[in-house]
Design a protein around this nucleic acid. Sequence first.
DNA 1: GGATGTGAATGTCTTCACAGCT
DNA 2: AGCTGTGAAGACATTCACATCC
Lengths: 206, 206
Amino acid sequence: MGKIAESTVRRLSVYLRLLEEFAAQGKGTVSSHELAGQGHTTPAQVRKDLSFFGSFGKRGLGYPVPELIAQLRDILGLDRPYRVAVIGAGKIGRALVGYQGFVSRGFHIVLLYDNDLDKVGVSWDGLQVRDERDIEADLAREPVDIAIVATPACAAQALVDRIVTTGIKAILNFAPVEVSHPDGVVVKNVNMALELETLSYALRNR
Amino acid sequence: MGKIAESTVRRLSVYLRLLEEFAAQGKGTVSSHELAGQGHTTPAQVRKDLSFFGSFGKRGLGYPVPELIAQLRDILGLDRPYRVAVIGAGKIGRALVGYQGFVSRGFHIVLLYDNDLDKVGVSWDGLQVRDERDIEADLAREPVDIAIVATPACAAQALVDRIVTTGIKAILNFAPVEVSHPDGVVVKNVNMALELETLSYALRNR
DNA sequence: GGATGTGAATGTCTTCACAGCT
DNA sequence: AGCTGTGAAGACATTCACATCC
């Protein structure tokens, strides 16, 4: 299959959410127009996005909701559970552990770390905080698919360097710093201050 | 000034962070190559991004660090403080209040709301949780620049509808749902499950 | 020499428009 | 008639390459 744009993948995730709402309402089929929502994208964009992966609709009718949900889950790789480790038991780590939106998508946080020994051993939502020094040993025994880095910026690069040695292939980085990493490891950044800064820019020019 | 791509604005934010690190190290000038970092973008991209707003560098030398910081802060609208309201005092709201990265950028969370009366009146980091029913009255008295929605998906649209009536112009939405809103209001979505889903897609194809 | 600034070329993504199926 | 699927066109973003200046 050809290379798919990141923007397309993000929209597929959005379509999946919308489709689940339509399914909950008992809708059997939806049109590209309905999936485009209230101006967030266009019907043509929806059809193009889906067409990269196959022909899921029926002309004159639209797309069958349950089948398209199954297809999108398959395309996005959500047809299986993921084991996730959260590194950093500060406020962000606290918010991530027990966040409903993860479990319902098959992302299970199974390990939680901090370097503060006062936190080690404490349980949050049934998950015990572990000693950050044990990361390599733990991940060797019970590998995870994804690591979420939720530490201060100054600690992030060293931790990324350590966890990539364990063979991890995907990292979600909440630390407000660009981390370098080997090819073959996918890193996505979530930077809340940066989002506010784009809002600031948007406000400035209006 | 012409319209600037969102991707450009996001990179400017990243450059600003890097520049502040260089400034802390006492560096007086940086080249586009240094600002491009370890492969996150290219020197040509850096120069193009900056050139949309002016000529800040000196040929043969590079860019003066303190001046470029001042310019970027000005361009991004970070040369003044912002008043921010957080709506939803759950785990995400908790993480946002007191997040250091906001204050250091001039984003001051001055109001915090929840609809759970057990939480109303409680103080977090010196900020008292207010009754969600008072939002309109409070914002009329003490307007804010940006609202952060950190509620469950089901509550988000109704709250957005209410706060746009107060004249707010920018919303950062953490609820995992696309909200509709009038033109003239800028809405940015941060959806952590969606980020994990793009990682899932990336893992699937390798 | 060394690095910027920028038009031109290239590459990527989105939108159009219509053939083709139901 | 209605809506999908898709090449082609258009818009947009990135990269190139070189003239320009310190």
